[in-house]
Design a protein around this nucleic acid. Structure first.
Lengths: 170, 170
DNA sequence: GAAATATACTAGGACGTCCAATGGTCCGCC
DNA sequence: GGCGGACCATTGGACGTCCTAGTATATTTC
């Protein structure tokens, strides 16, 4: 998509902000823009590793969540809440995973409104292999030092808690 | 999209990773997942602030870039490189901004392959107001402390440089 | 017990992103 | 001078995300 630039475009933007008299918010702007770009880079790497498995990150996340769930199944709404995405995104992902035979829908035994999603044996086998690939291909060579990882987890945990993602303290 | 959870789902995922014997990569996994979620939260806030202006973040970024460019115009390929997005994304954004009368396409004077995008007076006026709204509505209340911002900028700058985004040192 | 409200999922549409392929233009090299 | 490779922008398609609206089922309220 284009080779490296001679200068960091985000640092340039920060200087532009300061030059315009917005020095007060230039640093937060740069930090937020850097989060955006970092997410883009990481997502690109992840999708590249998952492509051979026929998975996208969204589908992988759902599959992995189900793999950890007791009984291997969850209500759609619960998956939406845990993955922090819109319910329609879950419907979309389940549609495609179901077409691939990796998950199955089933009615909730007592609540007629609820649909359960369960991982199939095939789904379980695939997510095992995909996880191994992600662990070795992305997470084990994340490009972050141990200190970086510790700081990111701490800073972003606090941010997400203040943003209302969850309520616990640790 | 759903209220706060009682527990941090990313911390839970990290524990699941450790329990499965992937402790070596559990922390980087959690850090990367936290970056993903943080980006999602921030993008949501930004889009919310920009909606009244009829702008999305992608279009705003292009407009802001042109506002800082000398002469208020850039080749499409240069915009793609600086914004670090695929050329087709720039084509898409320019199409819509042009329909709104905020930018204009013009042929490059000497290179017949390149198309220049220039911001219009109307575009300049709008991006001024949108920037003020973002500064006060998002960047000035980012949810990050000054220390957080300093650490994010440092850590993510290093990451992006190692990922090949740019080559300079600072 | 019936009406009003709340919850769960799905359908359709807008948007941004990327990829693969296309047609036009430039440039170095023979 | 021409020829082939490199570069530029666009088109068409796939995907994920969100929003709005709609249908069906539960729960609450009177």
């Amino acid at each position: 998509m284009g080779g490296p630039l001679p200068r960091d475009p985000i640092a340039d933007a920060q200087r532009n902000w300061e030059r315009r008299g917005w020095g007060e918010v230039a640093a937060p702007m740069a930090a937020i823009t850097a989060v955006m770009r970092t997410q883009q880079i990481l997502l690109g790497r992840i999708e590249e590793v998952l492509r051979p498995f026929g998975l996208t990150f969204a589908r992988y996340e759902l599959l992995a969540l189900l793999g950890f769930a007791r009984g291997g199944e969850l209500p759609m709404s619960r998956a939406s809440a845990l993955l922090q995405v819109h319910p329609t995104s879950v419907t979309n992902a389940v549609d495609r995973l179901q077409d691939a035979g990796l998950v199955e829908r089933s009615p909730h035994p007592t609540d007629g409104r609820t649909t359960l999603v369960g991982i199939t044996a095939e789904g379980r086998a695939l997510v095992e292999r995909a996880t191994a690939a992600l662990n070795s291909g992305v997470f084990a060579q994340s490009g972050f030092t141990d200190d970086d990882v510790e700081q990111l987890i701490r800073v972003l945990h606090g941010f997400r808690r203040r943003a209302g993602d969850f309520t616990d303290d640790p």
